[in-house]
Design a protein around this nucleic acid. Structure first.
Length: 448
RNA sequence: GGCGGUAUAGCCAAGUGGUAAGGCGACGGUCUGCAAAACCGUUAUUCUCCGGUUCAAAUCCGGAUGCCGCCUCCA
């Protein structure tokens, strides 16, 4: 039985999809594409990825959506600064997103909708909210009236009174209530705009997610996922808009992943680059990054540091020798696999699942059970978690040259010319070729 | 100020009533010309603190304290 923590109830709940057709409908709150993806986006992506992988293990079929918010204030600011059209900026970032996405081996989504491709749906939704009296026009803008929705705050646990008393609520003369949020922004000078019954303008933040999720998944759907920083106001506002427009409950389960924070170190230029998804992938590769994130439960915050990732890299290396694409998927140690699956079905407990994997590795080393069975089990678990099977191709010429050098080195060792033998070892190591002198011969491998 | 989360070894991190998974590091060992790698072993009488419930608590209840996030754009 799959259990998931639901932000809505603040409890781990048994997962019970709305529709009994075997399909689980998932909306993953994607990027606002004003910038390139960073480690935080990777974490959100890996979270919704393991969620979907576990749903599949639990034999559900999926229909999943990942959106791009490709028009917003920051994008417009960037356009002003760079004099590059916002569509070019957002497209570049989306391209990089997909590069990262493919590299990470994320399960494909069924649809990748963009806000600017759904202006009609957005306008329809706003019109409906105006008709029903949940929204009002003020100046050139349309606002959602928070006080009209009695249940406002039910996701984040915030109360309207507390929010109003807080100091951080922005003052805006156009709003009836300072907490009201904009659904449609009237066009200012030099800003992109679309035509609508309420004048030239563009959608506000929040409304695009309601419009797109309901278009592809229906008015009520199973899972809405995203970073926990989105709980308020983004997801709270999505619920308000959607439920006021349809009169039906919006998403049933709200899954939120923890943040990736930078501690101690300032977001310096160099670190800032390392923080970028593409840069991290170049440095560590998809498996190590995935492993690094799996080491901590998805709901817990992570303090990011290179040391932690290096540590993950060292640990991950212990698995690699046992991993092969060609394994018998059904010839496995059932008890171990059952524990593994149970761990994942218990609110995606990847740290525990990794623990089981290492226990299996230790069993192989101690020859506690039939090796082949354990290796198959290991490969199966490895595959379930979405790791990539990597084939290290040694190219022909390199192979021959290294063999020649090793022969020379062997004869030097026989002559007790250890100085030269060690020199060869060092020089090869500089070129990422690592020699292991074992009892019965020499092996070598190319390091990542 | 409000809301939410969290506190487990040197570090990272699972564990929601039955006596502390796993990883990194460190130390010891096997192997070795030496090293590295690999493997084996050791590494928390104790879970922030103070009370309480219970035969039994890291786990439940009450209180205190620290840290983090959100409340403004954010995955």
């Amino acid at each position: 039985m799959l259990k998931l923590y639901n932000t809505f109830s603040k409890n781990v709940e048994n997962f019970d999809p709305i529709s009994k057709d075997g399909f689980v409908r998932i909306y993953s709150c994607g990027m606002t594409v004003q910038d390139t993806p960073h480690i935080g986006h990777i974490r959100a992506l890996i979270t919704v990825d393991i969620l979907r992988r576990v749903l599949k293990l639990s034999e559900y079929s999926l229909f999943s959506v990942y959106n791009f918010t490709d028009i917003d204030d920051k994008l417009i600011t960037k356009m002003g600064e760079s004099h590059i059209d916002y569509r070019i900026i957002s497209q570049r970032n989306i391209d990089e997103f997909f590069e990262v996405f493919n590299n990470l081996n994320i399960l494909p989504f069924d649809v990748y909708p963009r806000a600017t491709g759904h202006i009609e749906e957005i306008i329809e939704l706003i019109s409906k909210l105006l008709e029903k009296g949940f929204a009002y026009k003020s100046g050139d803008d349309i606002y959602f009236s928070v006080s009209k929705f009695k249940e406002y705050g039910k996701l984040s646990g915030k109360r309207l009174d507390d929010l109003i008393e807080g100091k951080r609520v922005e003052v805006n003369q156009n709003k009836e209530n300072p907490l009201d949020f904009v659904l449609w922004k009237g066009a200012r000078d030099n800003e992109p705009y679309w035509y609508s019954p309420f004048g030239k303008g563009r959608p506000g933040w929040h409304i695009e997610c309601s419009a797109m999720s309901m278009k592809y998944l229906g008015e009520s759907f199973d899972i809405h996922a995203g970073g926990k920083d989105l709980i308020f106001p983004h997801h709270e506002n999505e619920i308000a808009q959607s439920e006021c427009a349809t009169g039906k409950p919006f998403a049933k389960y709200w899954i939120h992943n923890g943040m990736v924070n930078l501690k101690g170190e300032k977001m310096s230029k160099s670190l800032g680059n390392v923080f970028k998804a593409k840069e991290l992938l170049k440095l560590y590769g998809p498996n190590v990054l995935r492993f690094f994130l799996y080491k901590t439960h998805y709901r817990k915050d992570i303090e990011f540091s290179k040391e932690r990732v290096e540590e993950a890299k060292t640990a991950f290396k212990r698995l690699v020798p046992y991993i092969s694409e060609n394994f018998e998927e059904d010839n496995i140690e059932v008890d171990i696999y059952k524990d593994f699956k149970n761990a994942l079905e218990d609110d995606l407990n990847t740290p525990e699942a990794l623990g089981i994997i290492f226990e299996t590795v230790n069993m192989i080393n101690k020859k506690e059970k039939e090796e082949n069975l354990l290796k198959n089990t290991l490969c199966r678990m490895y595959k379930d978690l979405g790791f990539i099977f990597v084939k290290k191709e040694k190219d022909d010429l390199t192979e021959q040259l290294v063999e020649v050098l090793l022969k020379i080195r062997e004869s030097m060792k026989k002559e007790k010319n250890y100085q030269m033998a060690d020199l060869i070892r060092e020089e090869l190591k500089k070129r990422k070729i690592v020699i292991n002198d074992l009892k019965d011969g020499v092996t070598w491998k190319i390091e990542d």
